[in-house]
Design a protein around this nucleic acid. Sequence first.
DNA 1: ATATAGTCTCCCGTAATGGGAGAGTCAAGA
DNA 2: TCTTGACTCTCCCATTACGGGAGACTATAT
Lengths: 271, 271
Amino acid sequence: MLRIGDFSRLSRVSVKALRYYDEIGLLKPVEVDRFTGYRYYSADQLPRLNRIVVLKNLGLSLEEVAQLLNNDLPVSHIIQLLHVKQAEVQQRLQDEERRLVQVEEWLKRIGKEGIMPAYDVVIKKVNAQTVASVRDVIPAYNDIGKLFNELYPYLGKHKAQLGGPPIAIYHDMEYRERDVDVEVAVPIAGSLAATDRIKVYELPAVEHLACLIHQGAYETLNESYQALMSWVEANGYQMTGPDREVYLKSYDQTNDPASFVTELQQPVAKK
Amino acid sequence: MLRIGDFSRLSRVSVKALRYYDEIGLLKPVEVDRFTGYRYYSADQLPRLNRIVVLKNLGLSLEEVAQLLNNDLPVSHIIQLLHVKQAEVQQRLQDEERRLVQVEEWLKRIGKEGIMPAYDVVIKKVNAQTVASVRDVIPAYNDIGKLFNELYPYLGKHKAQLGGPPIAIYHDMEYRERDVDVEVAVPIAGSLAATDRIKVYELPAVEHLACLIHQGAYETLNESYQALMSWVEANGYQMTGPDREVYLKSYDQTNDPASFVTELQQPVAKK
DNA sequence: ATATAGTCTCCCGTAATGGGAGAGTCAAGA
DNA sequence: TCTTGACTCTCCCATTACGGGAGACTATAT
């Protein structure tokens, strides 16, 4: 009979952990003194404890370890659990790899620029949402306001319930100075009648959207676009669809273009 | 001004998380209604929130994120922190890789044998310990008892305090049927006079010891040895020193050889 | 008898939220 | 104006696998 300290030394498992395993019923001492509460273990219990340690290192929770050890499950079930664990480990492995790339990217950026980077790119997912939209080829970017001026009065007239900030979608696959194919859309709740010019439909969900918040006037948007594109490049993504601008803070909330807030969104996929 | 739900939708950060960030002072709403407690955010806060998300994804704790964002630390400090994080990520990456190998090993074993594996190998570290030992070349394994019979009476006579179970160290680098160079040792606490035959010295620590618990009579030890060696092979280790047997439960505690418990220990290093 | 080392239970803390209760608030429709 | 439903608030508990520490008791050696 071994006292907990001796058993701990033999097994290299801490006393605290042993008491915890006792508490959750994973490994009970062969004997507990009814008067003093002292736990007494036997060397015979070392194999079980070793197995606990090994399974834990495999990434199983103690609850899963207990399942594997207590019932004698069918082997198929065990294999299944291990396959699940394998997938989890692979997932975490990928996560860590991505993390490593990104830490290195930061180190590179900060080393080059000598200051904290000025922008951050986040990968998001957006759900499908019903929108009312107008799409047209306009002479220049600045004419985008006209499309909104077409859309908003219509929404007001039909008392549509707005469901979020307005969005612009640039359908050209490359950059254009003029004759820009652009769609402006506003999320709406409920239903709304469409017209020739104004479509109402469900904007599909996008799984991976590289997003960057642009602060300031629209004249400096191109810098932010460049930053976004180079991030996409550097992080091993490729662009998979038309990019969007979400007007989070614009003329409707402030008159100072310097305080505008716009989110640039670029659908991407891992290369 | 955005209510927390709107801000949550725009940022894709949960309301719970936003409230938590508020609580720990990481991102406070621009305004909190003094009567209702409602939090009001501004779109201007999205860049900061994005940065929080990005740094969190890099593996920083929220406390570290707060440090980076609140003080304007010297850039060198930031770089240093990132290097630390880089090392951590690499460590976790390695851990996961090892884990993956081991999960696959288990799947292979369980697939081949059709049942739960019968043994487990654990990597341990042992500290240095003072031992009293006798080393000799004995005709056969069975004669090992004679060495103990030489050692134990001496320890008893000098009232030595025993510090753990007895150990045998096999100094031959390869397996031998006869003329085995073996050392038997017993950890002791305090000091003890040595003799010609009985040495007292500090058995050095070993960083990586592949350990397997053998249950049963010593006649079947060789099977366990084979299991241990093939595990070492399969997991990319190599043997780096003489192996040991630790007699956790033996004649001194039971008369039934079938209930003996012995730990086989093989010093190893990663290949 | 005493000193020392070991053990017991109980309670708190971790990191970053998620879940839920119960109460109050906001905006829109009838 | 009232109601309804969607939001929001605070507070409390739970998660994982223990580690730290307090205060009390126990075992063993001198």
